[in-house]
């Protein structure tokens, strides 16, 4: 289906301000001065940018908060609509779904936010300097994991339904405005736009070589990681801003002998992360922790979830005070010699 851009924006406005669709909150990317894009409430100041590149803050932060009470957990009746999510973030969310809603374990709070949130994704019609989804076999437009997707076609959006929730949204829009049947021309145009963006991304990243398999990363001799980590200060900005990082600390904040458990996000880059009682840690050096992040993203997470832990959003590159470019590190390590057989112990 096709919807006029103005009509679409009016519908979203009604969802945000008049409770259309029963939504309590509408969240979308907005431009905040020169600082870039952030997920913001509809009413907050800033200009909406649905079809630009990814926000600074990861979509994950809307589903897995920096700090949440997980026990006891009372469901909060809050129905949310997120508009303008990006394909990279949706891939990350899909990994989180596997990690946090599976047959062994369900994080009740994450599940609650997932169930009560509708997601409208939007094609990337611009790219950031650090965007590299194509290096990670991704696309700058969502192919799955969305409820509804929008892609520009002149002054209209081409709508693609991705789930029952998306079907519900289309019906909602139909009641508010008239939708046009989609045409071959619209599809052709959208495909053309998408290919142009892919070409830009490939051009931007052609100096990085992700060729050899990632299982090579863990086999490269430890010494080759030393140079790459020289500028790392272990601040954890990369993990805090990563859309797939979900490591947590569980704190006991009991009141009057009633147990209360609060989870907050943690970072494997911090020295205290793996220290056990008595002071032992499997990763005492910054180099070990730095390397762990790469192995987690490119080796362990694929083993755990059958998905890469890196979706190529490039946020960690922007956030790093040491100006470390993940793409350079991966390319360089992949090209380094592998260590002699066996495990290196220091």
């Amino acid at each position: 289906m096709l919807i006029g851009k103005q009509d679409f924006h009016r519908c979203i406005e009604q969802c945000a301000e008049e409770g259309l669709g029963g939504f309590d909150q509408v969240i979308l990317p907005k431009k905040k001065g020169d600082e870039g894009l952030f997920f913001m409430n509809f009413s907050e100041e800033g200009s909406p940018a649905l079809t630009s590149f990814r926000t600074h803050d990861p979509l994950r932060a809307l589903f897995y908060f920096a700090r949440e009470e997980v026990y006891p957990f009372e469901e909060k009746p809050l129905r949310r609509l997120v508009v303008g999510a990006k394909a990279c973030d949706l891939r990350a969310l899909h990994l989180l779904d596997r990690a946090l809603i599976n047959e062994d374990f369900v994080d009740p709070v994450y599940e609650h936010w997932r169930e009560n949130t509708y997601i409208i994704s939007a094609d990337c019609e611009e790219i950031a300097e650090t965007c590299h989804c194509t290096l990670m076999d991704g696309k700058p437009y969502a192919e799955d994991h969305f409820d509804l997707n929008i892609a520009s076609y002149g002054d209209r959006y081409l709508l693609e339904e991705g789930s029952d929730k998306g079907h519900e949204l289309i019906n909602l829009f139909k009641k508010q405005t008239s939708l046009e049947e989609e045409s071959d021309a619209a599809h052709e145009r959208v495909t053309q736009n998408r290919n142009n963006i892919i070409k830009k991304l490939e051009q931007q990243n052609n100096k990085f070589d992700y060729g050899p398999g990632y299982e090579r990363l863990r086999r490269v001799a430890l010494d080759y990681w030393n140079e790459s980590q020289e500028d790392c200060v272990g601040c954890g900005a990369c993990t805090n801003i990563c859309p797939t990082c979900y490591c947590l600390i569980l704190n006991d904040e009991s009141v009057d002998n009633n147990f209360v458990k609060v989870r907050s996000t943690d970072s494997c880059q911090l020295h205290g992360y793996s220290i056990m009682a008595g002071g032992d840690t499997p990763r005492p050096k910054m180099r070990d922790r730095f390397r762990n992040r790469y192995l987690c993203k490119f080796d362990y997470m694929p083993g755990n979830f059958d998905e890469y832990g890196c979706v190529g959003c490039g946020r960690c590159i922007v956030a790093c005070p040491g100006e470390i470019d993940l793409r350079e590190v991966v390319s360089k390590i992949l090209a380094s010699p592998i260590k002699a057989a066996g495990v290196e112990h220091e």
Partner: peptide, 19 residues
Amino acid sequence: MEKKMYCGHGQCRHCMIGE
């Protein structure tokens, strides 16, 4: 192999030995 097991159910990733 007792490591730093925060959550107990494979969520927090602190106790990982490889994958």
